[in-house]
Write a protein that binds this DNA or RNA. Structure first.
Length: 829
RNA sequence: GCCUGGGUGGCGGAAUAGGUAGACGCAAGGGACUUAAAAUCCCUCGGAGUUCAACUCUGUACGAGUUCGAGUCUCGUCCCAGGCACCA
């Protein structure tokens, strides 16, 4: 064994051995408890970055720890390989997205292997593999059959100059990323997944996922945005028709003095037609559509509107309410129409003041409900209170009023209680090339025709040429777009949109359980064995979209009979970012630390160790070159402990029993067992790898102390060997390469991966004497050492009689003594 | 505005069920070894006072409270980060 720690050679050696022996390839084993550990798979952008290294290092510790504890651990890895960066890069580098993607995958796979992660590489796949997305197309067809996939028109970002649709990421500050020209909203037919069909279950389970961080669940709850309210119908003042609104404040209905519609509201055109307002309204609507394109600025926009020329009737006051089009009303929420109650809604208030509309107070604060306040209002009162000016409902509380008014409307067929969600259906159409084709055919005679399942897959053609403006070449590529109708055999065209890449990441975890299944998307038995994922680890940035879509897909696949789990991920760990100099690493800031360079300089074990030691996983990790030096130093210390004394350690038998040791050796023996307990609990129960590492550092420091003893006779080497072995096993999940090498150096022939996790003995934890802290009136005054067997009375007496304690209690009557066993005595005088 | 987190030395962080605040590491200072350097090892390291030392006071954003005892629990205030946000 080399006297010096040389990571480069040993890391390669063990990585090769793990691969050769297939140590991490697993199958279903009913005799052992399964554990499915998953880290969010990467987008193959070109190179692994430090965020990946941290994410996967955390996962690897957990995986290896559980393997040593005897679990059957599934720990797979793959590639989230469709997506726009491939198209952009391909245009720039004059290559093909497929080429670019698969080249990146090859390089990044080699990087992951160099880091020594314990993946079952036999299950690897990329989502751009036909053998993966073909099944996704099958899911789409089944969802289409069940009405869970449907088509409707929706707005997309459109660049007139480039004549193409733009993704949100391609719109920067309202202009096109290529030509800097303004982007407009254009209505196009799009495919949607009906996630709203599962909204209640998705919401319910956010209260039944104890293994998820509270804040992620809260974010999902906010995103779903359930609110209770009423649907109220307002008949038009002239002619037939009515306007439906959603409101949470039916109690303020008597104060509704006008109506606001979203510019896109379908009734706008009809309401203004033939009125003197027509031209003004159409101009306003056009302007609002333009303004919509940069959502950010919409917030700063002043509230504006225009009278449509028509009125509706307040169903309780029977007064006329002018109908306005207003720029702040969203078509996407509720019904796109809002009953305006200026006295009790700040936005309506501002609007009413601006356009001189009546403001009618119908709610008074509960504490001075009698004082009929007639001073002019300066702002809306949005609080609940007591109803006034509301005929029979006056005097009710807001809560009573909401219920009573809605009930009264319901009797007349003009209202009902209802629930509104913020969550909308998931638009999955992407007018992009590098994605999974949507398996639909459009026939002039038969209309929308799904591709028959036996005709799948619809293969994304790879012999296309990309267009310089970034638009998808598929609509222009006749061999793909031109086809025949499966129903009438007449000429037809394929859907040329592809699916959102979030679709691929919504079910990849299930495919990992049976990656080699070629007959069906999912092998029921295998999926049943492995799912749900026991522990999922990834960045907080996916708190809502990816995790919500994956939850939705799991429920859909469950209802189709493909899997049995209600939820995909039992436990979720969201790790923090890796930052440098206080900012997220980025090329533009020039603070990027390249994993390759770090591995080259220090070895993978050091990089892994630093990532785990510098911060607990959920916090941001500040990169520190000096910290990396420190991690490297610690590994050198570990190495020397074994290398400098290899012969003696090999020859010795590990110390097991507990008696007859000198104090320093007894202390080391106890420390060894304390460390085993601490590390086991820190890794297994808490994922606090930083404190686990700190505990091993303490053990190592103490071993160095013991090495200084004048005599190494008797049980010295056995006790030392037990400590060294424990040390190696405890760090094995964290720094596996050095652990393997040292384990072998001590004479073990099998991989440390197969060594059982060390156990501590309760007996060995017991000290003969314990240190007790003595407080007087809650202040620390002294420390005493007592026998571990001392009774409560003996400890109290020892504390009272202690000379330093006496300085503080002498001559004063003792009122009370609090004793915390093995820890502390507090004397109250 | 609403909803989450969070505020502890020069820095990263520890204190798991209310019981010694600052484990472990980094940086810094001092020393040993060396012809010298690197590496390694040892010592000091929240602040103030006093001092040969021992010791005392003080200290976990701020202010109250509960308790024998509060970084930890309660209430209020301030600040920071993240999410949502014209959501009717």
């Amino acid at each position: 064994m080399d006297a010096r720690y040389a990571p480069k050679s040993i890391e390669k050696k063990w990585q090769d051995l793990w691969e050769r022996e297939k140590l991490f390839e697993v199958g279903e084993d009913l005799g052992r408890e399964k554990y499915y550990l998953l880290e969010m798979f990467p987008y193959p952008s070109g190179r692994i970055h430090m965020g990946h290294v941290r994410n996967y290092s955390i996962g690897d510790v957990v995986a290896r720890f559980l393997m040593m504890r005897g679990y059957n651990v599934l720990h797979p890895m793959g590639w989230d390989a469709f997506g726009m960066p491939a198209e952009n890069a391909a245009i720039k580098a004059n290559t093909h997205p497929a080429r670019w993607t698969y080249d990146n995958i090859d390089y990044m796979r080699s990087q992951l292997k160099k880091l020594g992660f314990s993946y079952d590489w036999s299950r690897e796949f990329a989502t751009c593999d036909v053998s993966y997305y073909r099944w996704e197309q099958l899911f789409f067809l089944k969802m289409y059959e069940q009405g869970l996939a449907y088509r409707r028109s929706a707005y997309v970002n459109w660049c007139h100059t480039c004549h193409t649709v733009l993704a949100n990421e391609q719109v920067e500050g309202g202009v096109c990323w290529r030509c800097d020209q303004p982007v407009v909203q254009k209505e196009m037919d799009q495919w949607f997944f009906k996630i709203t069909a599962y909204v209640e279950e998705l919401l319910d389970y956010t209260y039944k996922l104890p293994g998820w961080p509270e804040r992620v669940l809260t974010m999902q709850q906010n995103w779903i945005g359930k609110s209770y309210g009423s649907k109220i119908l307002f008949p038009l003042a002239s002619g037939d028709g009515r306007i439906t609104v959603f409101t949470t404040r039916a109690d303020t209905l008597f104060g509704a003095t006008f109506m606001s519609l979203a510019p896109e509201h379908p009734m706008v055109e009809k309401l203004c037609r033939g009125t003197p307002q027509e031209e003004a309204v159409l101009r306003f609507v056009e302007k609002a559509k333009q303004a919509k394109r940069s959502d950010r600025e919409a917030e700063l926009l002043e509230k504006e509107g225009v009278f449509t020329g028509s009125c509706c009737i307040n169903p309780v006051t029977h007064e006329k309410m002018p109908i306005y089009v207003a720029n702040f009303v969203l078509m996407a929420y509720g019904t796109g129409a809002v009953m305006a109650v200026p006295a009790h809604d700040q936005r309506d208030f501002e609007f009413a003041v601006k356009y001189g509309l009546p403001i009618k107070v119908v709610i008074l604060p509960e504490d001075n409900a009698s004082a009929s306040n007639v001073e002019p209002l300066t702002a809306a009162n949005e609080e609940d209170g007591i109803l006034v000016n509301s005929s029979a409902f006056s005097g009710m509380t807001s809560a009573q009023g909401r219920e009573a008014i809605t009930a009264a409307l319901a009797e007349r067929g003009l209202g009902e209680e209802t629930i509104q969600y913020r969550l909308r259906d998931w638009g999955i159409s992407r007018q992009r090339y590098w994605g999974a084709p949507i398996p639909i055919i459009y026939c002039d005679r038969c209309g929308v025709v799904p591709v028959p399942a036996q005709d799948l897959p619809v293969v994304l053609p790879t012999d296309v040429e990309l267009l310089p403006n970034g638009a998808s070449p598929l609509p222009f590529y006749e061999p793909f777009a031109k086809t025949t109708c499966p129903q009438c055999n007449g000429p037809a065209r394929r859907e040329t949109d592809t699916m959102d890449t979030f679709v691929e990441s919504s079910w990849y975890f299930a495919r990992f359980a049976c990656a080699s299944s070629h007959e069906a998307p999912l092998d029921r038995q295998k999926v049943h064995y492995w799912l749900p994922v026991n522990q999922y680890i990834g960045g907080i940035e996916h708190a809502v979209l990816h995790l919500l879509y994956a939850r939705f897909f799991t429920k859909v696949l469950r209802d189709m009979g493909y899997l049995g789990a209600d939820e995909p991920f039992l436990n979720l760990l969201t790790q923090g970012m890796v930052i440098k100099d206080g900012a997220k690493m980025s090329k533009s800031k020039g603070n990027v630390v390249d994993p390759d360079e770090m591995i080259e300089a220090y070895g993978s074990d050091t990089v892994r160790l630093f990532c785990l030691f510098a911060a607990p996983p959920e916090k941001d990790l500040e990169w520190s070159d000096q910290g990396v030096e420190g991690a490297s130093r610690f590994l050198t210390r570990i190495w020397r402990l074994a290398a400098d004394h290899q012969e003696y350690l090999q020859a010795a038998a590990s110390y097991r029993d507990g008696a007859g040791l000198s104090k320093p050796l007894a202390d080391l023996h106890r420390k060894t067992h304390q460390t085993i307990k601490k590390v086991t609990e820190d890794i297994g129960d808490r994922f606090h790898f930083n404190t686990a590492i700190a505990a091993v550092m303490e053990l190592v420091n103490q071993m160095y102390q013991v090495m200084e003893l004048p005599s190494r006779d008797g049980p010295f080497w056995p006790v030392m060997k037990a400590a060294v072995e424990a040390m190696i096993l405890l760090v094995a999940p964290i720094v596996p390469h050095i652990a393997e090498e040292l384990w072998q150096a001590l004479g073990h022939s099998e991989s440390v991966v197969k060594a059982p996790w060390p156990k501590w003995s309760e007996e060995a934890l017991q000290a003969e004497e314990v240190l007790i802290v003595v407080q007087v009136n809650g202040k620390l005054r002294s420390r005493i050492v007592v026998s571990a067997e001392a009774t409560r009375e003996q400890v109290e007496q020892a504390a009272i009689q202690d000379a330093r304690t006496q300085d503080f209690i002498a001559g004063k009557p003792i009122k009370k003594i609090v004793v915390v066993p093995d820890k502390l005595v507090n004397i109250v005088v």
